[in-house]
Design a protein around this nucleic acid. Structure first.
Length: 535
RNA sequence: GCCCUCGUAGCUCAAUGGAUAGAGUGCUGGUCUUCGGAACCAGCGAUUCCCGUUCGAAUCGGGACGAGGGUACCA
């Protein structure tokens, strides 16, 4: 159980007891919100419950808080877990953990090592994270970087949180699709969409020897496969992101998935014909309008493919997380409608990554894949390095519209927090190497310096952080945590010398920095940044 | 037009309706007999504007202004 939840229980118990004694009137208490205090002066945890229930209690918030706190002060937990519980205007209850309790948590880190922070996922635990899924019409661009690293780290976090996670990449390579045909026509010289230097080079490859294929779908498919091979290599080797499944739309189509899905929708009466096309009644599941599945000319829409695909996904997973670019946000309702039609609305989460806006010399620079004006993700990686690029993306929340000035690449590579964090790790390793003394758990009772305790307080936030991210997908809190932990360590390092003549204190501090090493490495692993012993 | 995002220090970004709005970078000034100075400390500096809801609003509601995206029988 998390510390947070223990405190929740204590507060709840206090309220219920005061109600039983008639100090507070009876009412439904509801969920008690306990959060980490923003500042150390407000203790470790804080709750606003007194302000929330003040109306029901018919008492001023401050008074309610006092009643609750007085009750808590009489609890046995006060002795072994909490050292201070106080009321602050206008009615906050601030809770400070007992030093011995902090040390117990520290001990836990040293005992559990890399398993520290690992949680037990709920029973229904097969989760799929689908991300990047770039169309095979060209290289990955700067915008794809967001979804790429976010998805990868989210999958790492979910795994840490105890879920069975699968990473999946969906390839829109249907020979019937407009984009694949357009690629084919590009090869035939009838089209100019998707024409980039990169694509032109690949076209040369497939035309030599000259291809006999005439059909634009087939020809486009051939080109798309080449592009996809390149992208996959880039993702695996350069981005170092590994997918469990590379899912081909064309493959699904060939297996007859399309017809099966239509039959299935038909039996539920979700379909109708209008203007020569086949429609899906998505309105009845919350969409703004019904959608076409089969066009007048007999071709399937992209939406139909996606339904087929998602039906397949729902069979394989309990929970699906789709990470899309903001240009697909208009698609959310209809996909949600599909999930609702399957009775699985709650099992589909669609996350939208805002697009990256390119700026050059203060002016916007439009990217267009169709016109071939894109900035490669590969370029950025080459320019600033993989880890720095990863971190740069991961620090930002998915829904922030980010501006990227091409001239910033140099800045990013020089001024970033990655080294700061890695440096903290290297410093720890360097100290540990200087001594052959092995640490002892008992020694940690000598830790009492404010910088030491502050560092421990930071360390023990980790499990709750993992839980939080696995629930609300706020991946950007992880890099922030890494920075904050490194910060607390550097601060400690300045104030407290680890290796000294005081043997007991040396042992205690060695244990402490070992714990920092464990958690830091853990965080860096999840972020996909190397923990290096030397810089 | 309508719909969805978003608007926070000079810049890039944080902040489940909470307390004195945080970081990094930049700038100013300090720390040095380095367990690795790629460090530490201090200072300057911000919620686009106007109403409203609330004990309390960057956050919720309405409006104005601004940015991006979507509005296809494209993907």
């Amino acid at each position: 159980m998390f510390i947070k939840n223990k405190i929740q229980q204590i507060v709840k118990k206090a309220i219920l007891e005061t109600q039983r004694q008639g100090v507070l009137p009876k009412f439904e208490v509801g969920e008690i919100l306990v959060v980490r205090s923003e500042k150390e002066m407000f203790g470790d945890y804080t709750t606003n419950v007194a302000m929330r229930i003040s109306k029901l209690a018919k008492l001023a918030p401050q008074k309610v808080a006092e009643v609750i706190v007085n009750r808590i002060l009489s609890f046995s937990e006060m002795k072994d877990m909490l050292c201070r519980v106080e009321v602050k205007t206008p009615g906050f209850i601030n809770i400070t953990l007992e030093r011995s309790f902090l040390l117990k948590e520290l001990e836990k880190i040293l005992r559990e090592k890399e398993k520290y922070g690992a949680l037990m996922g709920p029973k229904r635990n097969r989760v799929q994270v689908e991300f990047i899924s770039a169309n095979p019409t060209g290289k990955l661009h700067i915008g794809h970087g967001r979804g790429a690293f976010f998805g990868d780290v989210l999958a790492n976090v979910l795994k840490k949180a105890g879920y069975k996670v699968r990473r999946e990449y969906y390839i829109n390579d249907s020979k019937e699709s407009g984009q694949i045909k357009a690629l084919g026509e590009l090869v035939q010289g009838k089209e100019n969409s998707y024409k980039t230097k990169f694509v032109a080079r690949i076209i040369e490859e497939i035309q030599n020897p000259k291809s006999k294929i005439q059909n634009s779908g087939e020809l486009g498919y051939l080109l798309a496969q080449k592009i996809q091979t390149y992208n996959r290599q880039f993702i695996e080797q350069k981005l170092k992101i590994h997918f469990d499944v590379w899912f081909s739309e064309e493959n699904l189509r060939q297996l007859g998935g399309v017809q099966k899905t239509i039959n299935w929708l038909e039996t539920f009466g979700f379909l109708y014909k209008k203007d020569g096309a086949l429609w899906f009644k998505t309105i009845q599941f919350g969409d703004d309008k019904d959608r076409v599945l089969i066009r007048k000319n007999g071709e399937a829409t992209y939406f139909l493919s996606d339904i087929v695909y998602h039906r397949d996904k729902f069979e394989r997973f309990d929970k699906i997380i789709d990470i899309w670019g903001a240009d697909h946000h208009g698609y959310i309702n209809r996909m949600k409608a599909v999930a609702a039609a399957m009775g699985r609305k709650e099992d589909l989460d669609i996350l939208i990554a805002q697009l990256v806006r390119l700026v050059k010399n203060g002016k916007e620079f439009k990217m267009s894949k169709r016109k071939g004006q894109v900035v490669d993700l590969e370029w950025l990686i080459d320019e600033v390095g993989l880890e720095v690029a990863r971190f740069f993306y991961l620090m930002k929340s998915l829904d922030c519209h980010m501006d990227f000035d091409l001239d910033r690449a140099k800045d990013i590579s020089e001024k970033n927090p990655v080294f700061y964090i890695q440096y903290a790790y290297a410093r720890i390793c360097s100290i540990l190497k200087k001594t052959s003394t092995s640490y002892k758990l008992q020694a940690i009772s000598y830790l009492e310096h404010p910088a030491e305790l502050s560092l421990i307080r930071e360390l023990i936030k980790f499990p709750e952080l993992i839980e939080e991210i696995s629930k609300n997908y706020s991946v950007h809190h992880l890099p922030a945590y890494a920075i904050s932990l490194a910060d607390k360590f550097h601060n400690f390092y300045e104030k407290c010398r680890v290796l000294s003549d005081d043997k007991k204190l040396t042992l205690a501090r060695l244990s402490l920095i070992l714990a920092v090493k464990i958690v830091l490495k853990n965080v860096l692993n999840i972020l996909g940044v190397r923990a290096k012993e030397k810089m």
